[in-house]
């Protein structure tokens, strides 16, 4: 089965991989990259099956780092090995990186201007709305079950109210969470 897979993907060039990820990196605003990648790679190009996509997605969510970048790395690796992973990650990051650096340069020049601050107040208000809605969309399930809600609250209290350093928060909450979700406890939820 492995051989057949290799055959099917041998025709995908590094340039094609780069172009696809560059496109997603350039058009995805305000998150939702995973949905774009699924649409392009699974539905349109059919480079991977939907099941395989879900497996790679869940690994990318388990590992530290940005989900979208991790998913690009795993997908690139799956298609063309290490070099595929490199071009996929570069593709997803480059467009945004250029825009961010451009904005950063402008911001450095105009940062102290009072009228810029009046514009920025609205930008910040919109940014918090964006972050809060993304948190809500991702967290709705976790916030509605007692066990996970308790862990959400504990993490928040340690981080924001007690102001512990992040490594300490993780060292405290992660073992507890792993205990609560240990494989044998699966049917407890």
């Amino acid at each position: 089965m492995n051989d057949r897979r290799l055959e099917a993907t041998a025709t995908i060039s590094l340039r094609q991989i780069f172009a696809q990820f560059l496109f997603v990196g350039a058009i995805s605003f305000g998150g939702g990259i995973v949905a774009y990648l699924r649409e392009l790679l699974v539905t349109r190009r059919q480079w991977v099956s939907s099941d395989e996509f879900m497996v790679l997605l869940s690994i990318s969510q388990t590992m530290p780092g940005l989900n979208a970048v991790n998913l690009s790395i795993l997908m690139g690796d799956r298609l063309r090995g290490g070099r595929g992973a490199l071009v996929a990650a570069l593709g997803i990051l480059l467009p945004g990186a250029c825009v961010v650096l451009g904005i950063g340069t402008l911001y450095g020049i105009h940062g102290d201007h009072p009228s810029a601050d009046r514009l920025l107040a609205g930008v910040m208000a919109a940014a918090i709305a964006l972050l809060a809605t993304v948190t809500w969309k991702l967290g709705r399930r976790a916030l509605c079950a007692t066990k996970s809600l308790a862990l959400v609250l504990l993490t928040f209290v340690c981080m924001s109210l007690l102001k512990w350093p992040l490594y300490l928060v993780l060292a405290t909450v992660l073992p507890l969470a792993l205990f609560l979700y240990r494989p044998s406890a699966k049917n407890a939820e």
Partner: peptide
């Protein structure tokens, strides 16, 4: 198990991010 354990923690941290911003 690791994935399920990380989900509420990352949501908690995101809530902290919302709070900070």
């Amino acid at each position: 198990a690791v994935q399920s354990a990380l989900e509420p923690i990352s949501i908690g941290l995101m809530c902290s991010g919302v709070y900070t911003i």
